[in-house]
Simulated scan of single mutants.
Amino acid sequence: MASNLVLNMKPPVFSSIEEERQHLKQKLAGAFRLFSKFGFDEGVAGHITARDPEKKDHFWVNPFGMHFSLIKASDLILCNHEGEVVEGNLPVNRAAFAIHSQVHAARPDVIAAAHAHSVYGKSWSSLGRLLDPITQDACAFYNDHSLFDDYTGVVLDVEEGQRIGKALANNKACILRNHGLLTVGQTVDEAAWWFITMERSCQAQLLAESAGKPVLIDAENAEVTRGQVGNTQAGWFQFQPLWNRIVKEQPDFLD
């Protein structure tokens, strides 16, 4: 029954570009509210972007300096791949532009990308290691995440963003050493969910290794499990309960 429910639940289909754009912006604003609830905000750091459904070389992003907990759909700004704000009155985070413009350019299949300085993600990133398949949830990233094994300061140069995009390759996530996590998806829902569950997987491995030596799931079963919990549909579906929660708790972000 559960597997049939997942198969029957799919992202919505829209009758117009305007309708799709509004839905995209609402999902983006909702993701920011959830990131705030989960403590992924750190000053002005962090950004989630979503490719515009019509202007494929433009993306929607949070305004620089606005707290995640305050963001509404109407606050989002539209930025082109040259870093120019073409819709909205507030500035764009230069790091958001440098990273996300190059990720979107390198991955035409990606609709959304998420990056934040979450506590466990940045803690794990300092180890310069990939996550191990120590839990069912972590298997979502088995052979499907990479490591950007460098740190040269705040990312303000598009060349650095290009190197991050190259390190991401065709994976759903990338660990940016000494920096944090980056996740991508074919929907805002998927990219946001991968970030949330990857952050928790970092937390789980840090806790497990502090207690002893974790037992790894064998490669064959880790691969099978990734196919079950780490596919695009699963990523979208697992975000839906969180979406329903934030809509009920904070419906003002839909404006």
Score class of each variant (00 low, 15 high):
2 A>Y: 14
6 V>D: 07
6 V>H: 11
8 N>E: 11
8 N>V: 04
10 K>S: 12
12 P>T: 04
13 V>E: 15
13 V>F: 14
17 I>D: 11
19 E>Y: 06
20 E>D: 07
22 Q>M: 09
22 Q>C: 06
23 H>Y: 15
24 L>V: 06
25 K>L: 11
26 Q>P: 02
29 A>W: 03
32 F>A: 01
33 R>F: 03
34 L>P: 00
36 S>C: 03
37 K>Q: 14
39 G>M: 04
39 G>T: 03
41 D>G: 07
41 D>V: 08
44 V>S: 14
50 A>G: 10
54 E>I: 02
56 K>D: 10
58 H>F: 13
58 H>L: 06
59 F>C: 04
59 F>K: 08
59 F>A: 09
60 W>S: 01
61 V>G: 00
62 N>C: 07
62 N>W: 03
64 F>K: 12
65 G>I: 00
66 M>N: 10
67 H>M: 11
68 F>K: 02
69 S>C: 15
69 S>V: 05
75 D>I: 03
75 D>Q: 03
76 L>R: 05
76 L>A: 03
78 L>F: 13
79 C>R: 04
82 E>H: 13
83 G>A: 10
86 V>I: 11
88 G>E: 00
88 G>L: 01
88 G>P: 08
89 N>S: 13
90 L>S: 13
91 P>V: 05
92 V>T: 08
93 N>F: 09
95 A>Y: 12
100 H>V: 02
100 H>M: 07
102 Q>L: 02
103 V>Q: 02
108 P>L: 06
109 D>T: 04
109 D>Y: 09
111 I>T: 15
117 H>Y: 13
120 Y>R: 01
122 K>R: 14
122 K>N: 02
124 W>K: 04
125 S>I: 08
126 S>E: 06
126 S>F: 11
129 R>I: 02
129 R>H: 09
130 L>W: 01
130 L>C: 06
135 T>V: 04
136 Q>D: 10
138 A>E: 08
138 A>L: 11
139 C>I: 01
141 F>M: 02
146 S>V: 06
146 S>F: 12
146 S>T: 15
149 D>C: 07
151 Y>A: 02
152 T>Q: 12
155 V>I: 13
157 D>A: 13
160 E>I: 02
161 G>C: 05
163 R>G: 09
164 I>R: 08
164 I>M: 08
165 G>L: 01
167 A>D: 13
171 N>H: 10
171 N>G: 02
172 K>T: 07
173 A>M: 05
174 C>G: 07
176 L>G: 12
180 G>W: 07
181 L>Y: 14
181 L>S: 02
181 L>R: 09
182 L>I: 12
186 Q>S: 13
188 V>M: 05
191 A>L: 10
198 M>L: 11
199 E>S: 03
203 Q>K: 15
204 A>S: 12
213 K>F: 08
215 V>Q: 14
216 L>E: 09
222 A>W: 12
226 R>Y: 13
226 R>S: 03
229 V>Y: 11
231 N>G: 05
231 N>T: 00
232 T>W: 12
234 A>T: 10
234 A>M: 14
236 W>N: 00
238 Q>Y: 14
240 Q>D: 04
240 Q>A: 01
242 L>P: 00
243 W>D: 08
243 W>G: 00
243 W>M: 01
254 L>R: 04
255 D>A: 10
